[in-house]
Amino acid sequence: MSGVVRLDSPAVHEFWRERHLCTLTTLRADGSPHVVPVGATLDADARLLRVTASRTSAKVRHVLAGAQRVAVCQVDGARWCTVEGMAVVRDDPESVAEAVRRYAERYRQPRPNPLRVVLEVTITRMLGSAALTGS
């Protein structure tokens, strides 16, 4: 059983603090999905999900070209959660530093990358397994 999960759910917060890789799905110009592994961090207070990336990556190019609707999915056995939302690319030092800080807390300190930007996804919907929905 699965369904809509609540952003204020303690189970959701805990799941997004655990160290799991995710997949990010963006859309190519022809509408086909581009799916890549990423590290992602959830900021429930701001209703944002952040993914750091190189400004030259396909995922960043897709968002800059207008494919702003994205999905980020995380799976651990029978537990899963997909965040849907609208992405923007931020390259200002404060946004990038905040994304790096959060990434380092969840995963590890990322290697230096002068081309680093952050995809900020404003969350519009979250879906997940029964373990996260309370069903």
Rank of each mutant, 00 (worst) to 15 (best):
P33I: 07
E14I: 02
E98G: 09
S9N: 00
A40P: 06
V51F: 05
P37V: 09
G31F: 12
R50L: 12
A78E: 15
D76I: 01
T56D: 13
W16L: 05
A78Q: 13
S95F: 01
A67F: 01
D30A: 07
E94Y: 03
V75L: 10
P37F: 06
S57K: 08
V60S: 07
G39E: 10
V75S: 08
Q109F: 02
R61C: 02
A99G: 15
E98V: 13
D45W: 03
V88T: 13
E105S: 09
R102P: 05
H13Q: 14
R116C: 08
R111I: 05
G77H: 07
L115E: 15
H34F: 09
G66Y: 10
L48K: 06
L48M: 09
S57I: 05
P114M: 05
P33S: 10
N113L: 12
L119C: 10
C81Q: 11
C81F: 02
A67V: 01
R90H: 14
R101E: 15
S32H: 15
R102F: 01
L24Q: 06
D76R: 13
R19I: 02
R19P: 09
V121R: 02
R61I: 03
R50Q: 11
E94L: 11
A46D: 14
A78C: 04
D45V: 10
L21I: 11
R55C: 07
A44K: 00
A58L: 13
A99S: 12
D43P: 05
T52P: 04
G31V: 11
G31E: 11
S9E: 00
R108G: 06
S57T: 15
H20D: 04
V38A: 04
A99E: 07
A40H: 03
R6H: 00
S32Y: 13
A78H: 13
A40G: 08
E14R: 15
V75W: 08
D8E: 14
L64K: 09
A53G: 15
D30F: 12
L119E: 07
V70P: 12
